[in-house]
Design a protein around this nucleic acid. Structure first.
Length: 590
RNA sequence: GCGCCCGUAGCUCAGCUGGAUAGAGCGCCGCCCUCCGGAGGCGGAGGUCAGAGGUUCGAAUCCUCUCGGGCGCACCA
């Protein structure tokens, strides 16, 4: 419809030019938008105002001139000048009501489009280190990333969902060491646990399972394991927890041997990864690929080495104090970054360069990374690396997700990862349910801090937006059940022949809302803003509830009854489609 | 100190990439069930869009500065 009107306007403008009433140039941005207020018609354009200066005429006069030259259209019932010079268009009732038919025909595909033309897009999200269960912060990334991916798929992109598994690196070594030390405790050794180890109970669970599976084969005497290290951090502030844990790790590697260490390491990794995978799946979040960091260096080709070689041959690497540095400052980063440490180990950043290089090699039209906002400082260096490699940086979009803060009884719920007292995603899901969790996570703009009110999410009342929307859906279902109980049935043919009966104000408002849905989905997808869907659904549910209170659907007149039922069935369809894009269920009854 | 995000109703937030009198929800006040689920609806009060400049027909929206919050600035991941 917008495009249709846009065409009409351009025709009129062209006519004005032909008549010499308008200069040739004037490359202006003509917009056709939905009006916010129905007293302004259905659509409005700003042509007259943006061209007024050029035409040296008053906006309102120019608007009149445009209107006079507007080709006639069967879908437009009225055109008028308003306000400072807007041209308002009124759509015919026929066009307005036809949305009901479109929705019935498209069903669960209503709102979808082919705008993306099947182009490949990759969305990488969550990608939390497999050093422990997901917590509520990861949950927001999961809900947001999944919604962004689903939205892009809905508008016609081919979406590849990926989780980057950091199955290498120091954090994982710390996990392996933590598991092993707990294992030794299970074996009866007296082990003082390192301050910097992973202290969560899950580590002990993993250790017990290791004992069950492997028996005593990894057992070593506590003295051999813990003696001769630098001092661990002490309550008085002395000691160095980092140096201590690193030393413990190398002792573990030495005592267990390559194979033994790898077995312990992978035992922990696999169990945690399985847990994460299951957690996400239960949350309705699935992936096409779990991409292993380790696979970048293992196997036939070493991607990290390739990336570094490419940077080096492009002259962007230099040596300083025994380490290899990437000149990222030449590409907008605030300073240069180490890619190979003086001990010969490549850094996490080096892996990330290789990973992003590899992503682009795979031929995606767009590569989207969803990161926690605390990683924002990392963006310039990754982009710098891609640029230095000669890749097209503009293909990479990094979306940041701010933290979610939980509130219970008006009080902030304390969260601290290291102390082991964090709230896991699973705990949250169990407490408020998947639907409320998915919805609350995306109901705010992603770059906005999220106050997650646990009491509200659980409450079954009008205060809770998720119940409000789901209730609207269930209410439609309930009406249909009621219809059946009265021995009546819905007749679509009759309904479609009587759509002109949908002339009540609240019916018109609903029709407009339903017609807007595809535009909302498109905007939400392109801007990566699932919260737009959440707000739209709330608004549409409200229009439905208003309708419900004002009018009876199951009325005597068959045609009117069917027309109204057609409308509320369309509402039901749109609510279900919208909720599904957010990963939320649309219950038939509650 | 430098960089990123954010300051809109008492509270939590929208504001469609510059448009018409700034919108919701909660809370507060007052109404609405002989009727399809009251887990609902309607109305009211409540705002100097943090502040100051600028850009233009027009600014909550874009630019600059100031003030106030959050986060990040490792040879850690």
């Amino acid at each position: 419809m917008k495009d249709h009107l846009h065409g009409l306007i351009l025709d009129a403008v062209a006519q004005l030019r032909k008549e010499g009433l308008l200069a040739e140039e004037a490359d202006v941005d003509v917009k056709v938008e939905r009006t916010r207020d129905s007293s302004h018609g259905d659509f409005a354009t700003n042509v007259a105002m943006v061209m007024a200066k050029h035409a040296r005429r008053k906006p309102r006069d120019l608007a009149e001139m445009v209107i006079e030259r507007l080709p006639s259209s069967a879908s437009v019932s009225k055109v008028e000048v308003a306000g400072p010079g807007f041209i308002n268009f009124y759509i015919t009732d026929d066009v307005l009501q036809s949305v009901v038919k479109r929705i019935a025909a498209a069903g669960e595909r209503y709102g979808h489009s082919t705008m993306g033309e099947g182009k490949l897009v990759q969305v990488e999200f969550v990608s939390a280190n497999p050093t422990g269960p997901l917590h509520v912060g990861h949950g927001r990334g999961a809900a947001y990333g999944a919604a962004v991916a689903d939205l892009l798929a809905a508008v016609g992109y081919r979406v590849h969902r990926e989780y980057y598994v950091n199955d290498a690196g120091r954090q994982m070594d710390i996990l392996a060491a933590s598991v092993w030390l707990r294992y030794l405790q299970v074996c009866g050794e007296e082990i003082v646990f390192p301050t910097n180890g992973y202290k969560g109970d899950y580590v002990s669970d993993i250790a017990r399972l290791l004992k069950e599976r492997e028996g005593d084969r990894f057992k070593q005497a506590a003295d051999d394991v813990l003696s001769g290290h630098p001092l661990d951090a002490q309550p008085d502030g002395s000691g160095d927890k980092e140096a201590y844990i690193d030393s413990v790790i190398s002792r573990a590697k030495q005592l267990l041997g390559v194979d033994g260490y790898r077995t312990v390491f992978d035992h922990g990794l696999d169990l945690i990864l399985d847990d994460i995978r299951q957690d996400l799946q239960e949350f309705g979040v699935t992936y096409d690929d779990w991409y292993s960091e380790r696979s970048l260096t293992e196997g036939s080709s070493d991607k990290v080495q390739q990336a570094l070689d490419r940077l080096e041959s492009n002259g962007h690497i230099y040596l300083k104090e025994g380490a290899k540095w990437f000149k990222s400052s030449e590409f907008g980063d605030e300073k240069d970054r180490v890619v190979v440490r003086d001990n010969g180990q490549t850094t996490y950043f080096a892996s990330d360069i290789a990973y992003h290089m590899e992503k682009l090699e795979r031929g995606y039209e767009r590569v989207i990374d969803v990161w926690g906002a605390d990683h924002h400082g990392y963006i310039p260096r990754v982009k710098a690396a891609l640029q230095a490699l000669g890749d097209d940086v503009s293909k990479l979009d990094v979306l940041l997700v701010q933290f979610a803060i939980l509130y219970r009884g008006g009080e902030r719920v304390p969260m601290s990862t290291r102390s082991g007292s964090f709230v896991t995603l699973r705990e949250l899901r169990n407490e408020v349910g998947n639907d409320a969790a998915r919805f609350f996570y995306v109901m705010r703009k992603s770059e906005q801090h999220l106050d997650f009110d646990l009491d509200l999410a659980k409450s079954k009342s009008n205060e809770n937006p998720i119940y409000y929307i789901q209730y609207a859906h269930a209410r439609v279902c309930s009406v249909m059940r009621q219809l059946e109980e009265k021995g009546l049935s819905y007749d679509q043919k009759s309904a479609f022949s009587g759509l002109e009966l949908l002339s009540e104000e609240c019916e018109q408002a609903l029709l407009v809302a339903l017609a807007k849905f595809p535009e909302i989905v498109e905007a939400a997808a392109l801007n990566h803003e699932p919260h737009q869907i959440a707000h739209y659904l709330r608004d549409t549910a409200n229009k439905f509830h208003t309708y419900y209170n004002a009018h009876q659907f199951i009325v005597e007149s068959g045609t009117r009854r069917n027309a109204r039922l057609a409308l509320i069935l369309a509402v039901k369809q749109v609510l279900a489609n919208g909720l599904r894009l957010l990963g939320v269920s649309a219950p038939e009854s509650m």
